[in-house]
Every structure is written in structure tokens, then in C-alpha cells.
């Protein structure tokens, strides 16, 4: 049976008059890589801090493995946190930082040294145990923070935008490493991020936050392919919505619809071809953005509204692509990729 690692029920938090978290219900399973995705100020970090015990909730309950921990102090909860700016103790060596939690648990000195070294090896930092945090690079500090939080094998690991301060290359590398590490240790990861790519890449499931509420919970594919609200459609992936008269004319129904840019083919208007039973619309190319591996077309539809289409550069080069600007095109996509987006409640 799959247990619930975390259960949040109508969790709320107000700071003075501002309501940072306005009633959140979530269930996170054991061993899951769960992301909380949202723009800054959407309440995701506050929820994380309440799970860790740093902020007392204004209302609602928090259960960890079936136990109500709403009123417990951080040191009474079996969760560890990886902080955004790492929060390593500057007066301790790397090894002492990693062994800190074990020392508090009164693990014998030999044991905790061995486990700290193992944890450092897990994050590929062997041999750096005697250094101070200030002597390490950002990526290395990040790994120390990870080793410190994982060494005593908590039930849940909370990660607060842990990759935010790293440069792009390192971030992509760490995303893969984190995911592998999570699979190896089998600990529940709750990962806070404002980066949709990060969330889509790493997560088993994602909760999209907006204004202190959860807009949608689902697998990356569900979130991406079938956004439940206009906000989710806009925040995850490129906003590509058809509404009002444009929707009526193109889709043939009233409402709001989302079509992901990579599902749309761009054809010259005068050229035949394409799929006969595809949905489509005609328009003028307003802008062409050459991205190297792909090209993004911004097309103003005759029916009104604007759609973005993304084409892999299979045969085209930057010169060919530039010639498209201002030309008339026909957009085509499979009818099943037209997704109705329910209006926000």
C-alpha cells in the first residue's frame, strides 16, 4: 500500500492583512518527487516553510505520515530542508556541517564521520570535508546542503528553489543528478521552484500555485497538455490561448482554448499539403525568432488573436526563416490538441 507522506488540509497563512496561503489541500505520496510551481509571491515557499515548521499556520492542518504535526517545532519533525541560499554554518567545516544532524541525534563519532563521508561521496564531494563553506563554489555548497539534509535519511526532503543561484549549465546538470539521487534514496522530495522547465523535467507530480491557492495538481504531461485554468496554460509553457470571437471562428465553439506551440505546423498559404482533417487558421507572420535548434513564429490570425508556433529546424536555416517575416501562412494542428481551458472559478 502506498502511504501518504504529507497531507495538507485547508492550510492558510496570513502575514498581517496579506493572505500568503489561502486554503491549500494537498496529498503527497511516499517516495514521490513533488514540485510546487508558481510565480514569486504565490505562496509556495510559505507552504514549504509551514511543512518544515518554520512558520505556524494561521489555519488548517499538516500531517506527516499520518501524524498531525501542525503545532510541532521544526526539530520535532522528520523532515529536512535544503535552503535557497544553502544556509551552511560558516564556522564549521564541510564534514562538521554534514555531521551536525547526526551529532544532535547522538550518533557515535566514528559512525557519524563515516556516514558524513558517505553522504559527501554521494554528492561527489569526496575529499573536501576539511574545507570551510566559504572555500567552495556555489554548486559545491549546494551539494553540501543536499548531503547535510540527506545524511540522516529523513522521511521527507524539502527543497526551496535549491538551484536558483546556479548558472544554466550547472542547473541542468543538477536537475538530472537530483532526480537520480531521489530515485536511489527513495525519499519523498518536495521541490519548490518558479521555473516551469525544472518542474516539468524532474517531477512525478506538480502543483501549480497562484495567489496562495493551488490551481492544478497533476503529472507534468497533464499539466502541460491539459491545463485546468487559463493561469496554468499561461504559466506552464508559452501562453497560446484563443478566446472570444477568434475561438468561435477557429474552433467553432465559444470558450477559451489552448494549443501548444510545438503542435502547430506552419505552411505557406499558397502551398497545398498538410493533413486534410486538421484544424487550422490563416494569418500573417508578425515576428520570427530564430532559436538555433528551433524557430518560433508569431502569427496574427485573420480571425483575430495571435498564436505562437514552434518548428524544429530540420532543414531550414536562419536565412530561410527570416524570409517568412510578413508572409501569409496557414497554421495546422490535430483537433485533439485543441484543449478547452475551463475559465477560472
Amino acid at each position: 500500500m502506498e502511504g501518504k507522506a504529507i497531507r495538507l488540509q485547508s492550510l492558510r497563512k496570513s502575514f498581517g492583512k496579506t493572505e500568503a496561503v489561502a486554503g491549500v489541500d494537498l496529498e503527497i505520496s511516499d517516495g514521490e518527487f513533488f514540485s510546487m510551481l508558481g510565480p514569486s509571491g504565490s505562496g509556495k515557499t510559505t507552504v514549504l516553510r509551514m511543512i518544515a515548521g518554520f512558520e505556524p499556520p494561521t489555519g488548517g492542518t499538516i500531517e506527516l505520515a499520518g501524524r498531525d504535526v501542525t503545532r510541532l517545532a521544526p526539530f520535532e519533525r522528520d523532515v529536512h530542508t535544503v535552503f535557497q541560499d544553502y544556509a551552511l554554518f560558516p564556522h564549521m567545516t564541510i564534514e562538521q556541517n554534514v555531521a551536525y544532524g547526526l551529532k544532535i541525534q547522538k550518533v557515535s563519532k566514528a559512525d557519524r564521520l563515516r556516514r558524513a563521508r558517505e553522504a559527501l561521496a554521494d554528492v561527489r564531494l569526496d575529499g573536501l570535508g576539511d574545507r570551510r563553506p566559504s572555500q567552495l563554489s556555489g554548486g559545491q555548497r549546494q551539494r553540501v546542503a543536499l548531503a547535510r539534509a540527506l545524511v540522516s535519511r529523513p522521511r521527507v526532503l524539502l527543497l526551496d528553489e535549491p538551484l536558483g543561484a546556479l548558472d544554466l549549465k550547472l542547473r541542468e546538470q543538477m536537475q538530472i543528478e537530483l532526480k537520480e539521487l531521489q530515485r536511489e534514496v527513495g525519499i519523498t522530495f518536495v521541490f519548490v521552484t518558479h521555473d516551469q522547465d525544472e518542474a516539468l523535467t524532474m517531477s512525478d507530480r506538480i502543483a501549480v500555485f497562484n495567489r496562495g491557492r493551488v490551481e492544478q495538481v497533476g503529472t507534468p504531461a497533464e499539466i502541460y497538455e491539459r491545463p485546468a485554468t487559463p493561469f496554468v496554460a499561461g504559466f506552464v509553457g508559452t501562453s497560446n490561448l484563443l478566446t472570444g470571437p477568434a475561438a468561435e471562428q477557429v474552433v467553432g465553439e465559444t470558450g477559451t482554448f489552448s494549443i501548444r506551440p510545438e503542435k502547430i505546423r506552419v505552411l505557406k498559404e499558397d502551398r497545398d499539403g498538410g493533413t486534410p482533417d486538421a484544424s487550422g487558421a490563416v494569418g500573417t507572420v508578425a515576428e520570427v525568432v530564430y532559436l538555433g535548434d528551433a524557430t518560433r513564429f508569431l502569427v496574427d490570425l485573420d480571425a483575430g488573436g495571435r498564436l505562437t508556433a514552434l518548428q524544429q529546424n530540420l532543414e531550414t536555416s536562419s536565412e530561410d526563416v527570416a524570409a517568412y517575416r510578413g508572409s501569409r501562412v496557414r497554421l495546422q494542428w490535430q483537433p485533439r490538441h485543441t484543449v478547452r481551458v475551463p475559465d477560472a472559478p
Binding site: 521544526p74 526539530f75 529536512h80 535552503f83 554554518f89 551536525y100 539534509a149 540522516s152
Partner: peptide
């Protein structure tokens, strides 16, 4: 956050 981190790792 150093105080938070210490509490988080189990320190009273």
C-alpha cells in the same frame, strides 16, 4: 536561515 537550518536538523 542558519537558525532555521539548525532547528531543521533537530537542534533544540
Amino acid at each position: 536561515n542558519l537558525l532555521d537550518a539548525s532547528a531543521d536538523l533537530g537542534a533544540r
